[in-house]
Design a protein around this nucleic acid. Structure first.
Lengths: 204, 204
DNA sequence: AGTCTAACCTAGTGGCCACTAGGTTAGAGC
DNA sequence: GCTCTAACCTAGTGGCCACTAGGTTAGACT
C-alpha cells in the first residue's frame, strides 16, 4: 500500500478510536491493528502518539472553521447567516461522526495533551469569533462589556452546539432541521430579545 | 487518624485529582500521597479505584440534585423559580470547585467507567427533569413532541450551564449574578419567546 | 541483473499503574 | 498488663503500553 493511502487509513482508524475512547483510552496497538499494520509502521508515518493526535485535531478543527468561513457571509440578515452556518455545521457533524466526537470529547487526563487541545481549540475559536466581531451589530446584540460578553456568548453557543451534536450522535433519526431549529430557538431568539430590552433581571 | 477522617481526606484528594486529570489520569499512588497515606490504606477504605470514583460521582450528583429539589419549588412564577435554581446551582459550583469539574469532565476512555458515569448522570437527569414535567406549563413551553423536545431542552440547558460553569472556573472574578443572568438570558427568554409564536423557521 | 527506497515485520524494553501479601504499630477496653 | 482491632507500612507482582532495534520484502529505476 502506498504511503499516502496507509497514512490515510491510520488517520481514519485513529480518529474513530480517539472519538470512542479519548486520548488515553486509545492504544497505539489497537489503532495499528485497525489500520491493518503493526505499531512500527505507524511510527514510520507519525513521530509519536501525540504527533498523530495533534495532526488530527488540527485537521478537523480546520475543517469546521472552514464551514463557518464559507457560510457566515453574505448580505442577508444576521439571523439567516447564523442559521445557514448552524445548518452547515451540523451537516459537517453528520458527515464526519468521528471528527465531532473526537474534538468535543472534553479532556484526556494528560496535561500536555490537554494544553495542546486547548491551544488548537482556542485558535479555532478566535477565527470564528472574528467573523462575529466583524459584524456591525455585535455591540447591539452582545451588550456593553464586549470582551467578557463575547466570550460568554461563545461559551453559551459552544455549549448548545456541542451538546446537541453529541446528543444527535445517539439519536441519528432526528432530522437535521429539527436540531438546527432547536439551536436557533435557544440561541438566536434569546440574543435578539435580550437586546430588545427584555433581558432578565433579578428584580424583574 | 480515625477511619472517617481518613476516608474524608481520601475523598477530598480524589475529587480534586479526578477533577484535574480525569479518571485515567488520576493515579491511586498520587491520590494516596495527597491524602498523606500509602496505597494499601486507600484500599482499606475503598474496594477499588472504580468504587472510589463511583462513590464520589454519586455523592456529588446527589448534592446537585438536592439543589434543584430545594430551589425549584414554590408558588412564584416559573421564571423566578428557574432563576433561583440557576443561582443556587452556580452557588454550589462556586462552593465546590472540584465537584463540578469532576462531574462535567466529559469522558474517561475506559468504557466501563464511561457507562457508569452515564448511568449515574442519567438518574440525576431523570430526577431533575421530573421537576419540570410536574409543571403544568411544560407542554406550552416545550412544544408538541414532548419526549424528544424535553430531552433536547435538557441538552441545551445542560450545555449552557456546564459550559458557563467550566468557563467560570477559569474566570473566578466574574460575579455570580452575571453568570446567572447570562444563563437566564440565553435559556429562558428563548424558551418563552419560542412559545409566544416567535420560533425560528427556515422559511422566515 | 543490480541497487535503492520504503513499507513492513518480529521481538523485545522500560516504565507506569492498579492492586496485594504479609507484617508492624498504637490505641481502646478489660 | 493483655488482647483485639484497625490504621498503617514495605516491598513487591503482573499487566499494559508507548516506543524501538534490527531486520526482511517488494517494487521502481538504471
Amino acid at each position: 500500500m502506498s504511503a499516502a493511502t496507509r497514512r490515510a487509513s491510520i488517520e481514519d482508524a485513529a480518529t474513530a478510536l480517539f472519538a470512542e475512547r479519548g486520548y488515553q483510552g486509545a492504544s497505539i496497538d489497537e489503532i495499528a491493528r485497525r489500520s491493518g499494520v503493526t505499531p512500527p509502521v505507524l511510527y514510520d508515518h507519525f513521530a509519536s502518539k501525540q504527533d498523530l493526535y495533534r495532526r488530527l485535531l488540527e485537521r478537523h478543527f480546520a475543517e469546521l472553521r472552514q464551514v463557518w468561513r464559507e457560510n457566515f457571509v453574505g448580505e442577508d440578515p444576521p439571523a439567516r447567516r447564523v442559521a445557514r452556518s448552524f445548518d452547515a455545521w451540523f451537516a459537517y457533524i453528520e458527515a464526519h461522526p468521528f471528527a465531532g466526537r473526537m474534538l468535543f470529547r472534553d479532556t484526556t487526563g494528560d496535561p500536555k495533551i490537554e494544553a495542546m487541545h486547548q491551544e488548537v481549540a482556542a485558535s479555532s475559536r478566535a477565527a470564528i469569533m472574528g467573523l462575529f466581531t466583524d459584524q456591525p451589530e455585535v455591540e447591539r446584540v452582545i451588550g456593553p462589556e464586549l470582551e467578557e460578553g463575547l466570550e460568554m456568548a461563545w461559551i453559551v453557543m459552544r455549549g448548545v452546539l456541542q451538546g446537541l451534536a453529541m446528543w444527535w450522535y445517539e439519536h441519528p433519526r432526528v432530522p437535521r432541521e429539527r436540531i438546527v431549529a432547536t439551536a436557533m430557538n435557544a440561541l438566536w431568539i434569546g440574543w435578539e430579545r435580550t437586546q430588545a430590552g427584555e433581558a432578565w433581571s433579578a428584580e424583574g
